[in-house]
C-alpha cells in the first residue's frame, strides 16, 4: 500500500512537470528571502560598494535635495579628532555606542563613564536598522550617493565613516555613523538610513571608537574588534 502511494506521488510530479517547475521557481524566490544572506536594501543605493572604500575628492560639488552643496576639503593631517576629552583618559571598561531613534540621541560610554552625548539624524527616507551591531571598518572619507528624483544625492568627502553590521544587517549594506556637511537639522530624521552626526562630534567619536585608527582605512579583526553599537527605537 505504502509502495503504491509513493509510486503515485512520483508519478504525480513526473506526469505533470508543470508542478516541478512551479516548485523549483518558488524555491528560487523563497530561499533568498529566508536565508541569512538576503540582501536588505543598501543605505546608499547607488554607491553600495563604492562607499566602502576610502576616497577623497577635494573641490568637488555635491547634490542633496536638488541643491548644490560645496564639499569641504578633507585635511588628512591629524586634527580635532585627536583632541583629548575630559574624563576619557581615566575611563576603563568596554566602549559602547547607543543610538535612540525616538530622541535622536547618541550616547557613547566607556564602562560607566559617558564619553559623549549628542543629537544625531537617523533615517527619514530609509529606515535605520535597530539591534546590536559592531563597527567592522572605519574610513576617513568616502563618497555616498543614492535616492532618485527629488531624493537623489551625491556627496563626496563624507568624513569619519564608521560602518557597522550584524548577522541580519550585513557589512555590504553599508550602514554607518558619519559626519555631515550638507544639512544641519540634528535631533530630527534626515538620512537614507545612516546615522548622521555633526562633523566635530563624529571626529572625536571616530578617534575614540575601536578598532584604534591606523591610516585612512582601519578594519576590525579578532585582535582589534570594533566597538559595539546598539540602536533602539526608543520612546
Amino acid at each position: 500500500m505504502v509502495r503504491r502511494k509513493r509510486k503515485k506521488n512520483i508519478h504525480f510530479i513526473l506526469r505533470y512537470p508543470i508542478n516541478l517547475i512551479v516548485i523549483l521557481t518558488l524555491v528560487g524566490l523563497i530561499y533568498p528571502v529566508v536565508s541569512k544572506n538576503y540582501s536588505m536594501p543598501c543605505a546608499n543605493s547607488l554607491s553600495c560598494e563604492e562607499s566602502l572604500k576610502f576616497k577623497v575628492e577635494n573641490n568637488a560639488v555635491g547634490i542633496f535635495e536638488n541643491q548644490k552643496v560645496n564639499t569641504p576639503n578633507i585635511d588628512l593631517s591629524p586634527g580635532i579628532g585627536n583632541q583629548s576629552v575630559l574624563g576619557e583618559s581615566n575611563a576603563t571598561g568596554e566602549k559602547h555606542i547607543y543610538v535612540n531613534l525616538a530622541t535622536q540621541t547618541l550616547s557613547a560610554y566607556q564602562g560607566d563613564t559617558l564619553f559623549m552625548q549628542t543629537l544625531i539624524s537617523s533615517g527619514l527616507w530609509g529606515k535605520t536598522p535597530t539591534g546590536d551591531f559592531t563597527i567592522w571598518i572605519k574610513i576617513r572619507s568616502t563618497t555616498m550617493s543614492g535616492g532618485s528624483g527629488a531624493d537623489y544625492y551625491n556627496l563626496p568627502n563624507v568624513p569619519y565613516v564608521m560602518f557597522f553590521s550584524n548577522n541580519q544587517v550585513p557589512a555590504s549594506a553599508g550602514f554607518s555613523l558619519h559626519g555631515t556637511y550638507w544639512h544641519n537639522n540634528f535631533g530630527h530624521r534626515m538620512s537614507h538610513g545612516c546615522v548622521n552626526m555633526k562633523t566635530t562630534d563624529v571626529a572625536k567619536l571616530y578617534e575614540w571608537a575601536d578598532p584604534p585608527t591606523a591610516g585612512n582605512t582601519t578594519r576590525a579583526n579578532d585582535t582589534n574588534p570594533g566597538t559595539k553599537v546598539t540602536i533602539i527605537k526608543g520612546s
Partner: peptide, 9 residues
C-alpha cells in the same frame, strides 16, 4: 523651525 535642510533652506 528646526534647522537647515541645505545651505539656504
Amino acid at each position: 523651525v528646526t534647522g537647515w535642510a541645505a545651505p539656504n533652506l
